[in-house]
Each structure stands twice: as structure tokens, then as C-alpha cells.
């Protein structure tokens, strides 16, 4: 499992992507991240909620209360129009970043 700073810088995009696919609540997202990365990356809850706060402040996501489950009402998040635009932009940015880094990292094995 890696806990790299490089991933940290992209947590907003990762979480936005998951919310973009469908509205989700906190635990679901952290679980999705573990499952999709085959447990190679796990997000700490503290980090996750900090990112939610940030995204919500930037109006990239918004929240609403869903059905009651263990321990209370689930707080779901949905992506906003702004969030979608932002996600698209970061995806484009990432593609370019990847290309640039690849120029220097490829063929070293």
C-alpha cells in the first residue's frame, strides 16, 4: 500500500470522479477507493472528510441527507456543474502532467 504525496495532490479529483459516477456517502467512497485500487491505496477517514469540506467550500460538490442507516442519516454528496467542469479540467491537466513525467521516467527499468 502506498501513501504517497503524489496521490495526495490528486485526492480531490479521485473523490470528485467517484461522486461524478453516482451520489455517494463517506464510507462508500473510502471503500470504493480501496476496492478499485485493490487495497494498494487506502484513504484515511480524516483525509476524506477534510477533502469533502474543501470541495464543498469550493462549491464543487453539495450534500443532502439520505436514508437512515447504522448510526444515523447518511450524508450523500452530489457533484455540481462547477464540479463537473473542474473534474474535466483536472483530467486534462493530469493527462498532460503524465506525459511530461513519462518523458523522464520511462525506460529506466
Amino acid at each position: 500500500m502506498i501513501r504517497s504525496d503524489i496521490i495526495r495532490g490528486h485526492l480531490e479529483s479521485i473523490i470528485l470522479r467517484l461522486i461524478y459516477e453516482n451520489d455517494q456517502y463517506g464510507y462508500e467512497i473510502s471503500k470504493q477507493i480501496s476496492v478499485r485500487t485493490d487495497n494498494r491505496f487506502q484513504i484515511k477517514e480524516a483525509t476524506l472528510y477534510a477533502v469533502f469540506q474543501r470541495l464543498e467550500k469550493k462549491a464543487l460538490i453539495e450534500s443532502y441527507y439520505g436514508k437512515v442507516s447504522h448510526g444515523g442519516k447518511r450524508k450523500y454528496y452530489r457533484i455540481t456543474m462547477l464540479g463537473k467542469a473542474y473534474l474535466k479540467e483536472t483530467a486534462r491537466e493530469w493527462k498532460e502532467t503524465k506525459e511530461i513525467i513519462d518523458l523522464f521516467m520511462e525506460g529506466l527499468d
Binding site: Y27, Y49, S69, K73, R74
Partner: peptide, 17 residues
Amino acid sequence: ETIKQEIYQNLEEKVYD
């Protein structure tokens, strides 16, 4: 209080899971 409630709820959910 909101974020506390949210964290509490999600942790419970994790424990059940």
C-alpha cells in the same frame, strides 16, 4: 456538529461492514 455527526455515522457503517 454536522461533520462530527457525519464521521460518527460513517464510522458506525464501517464497523458494521
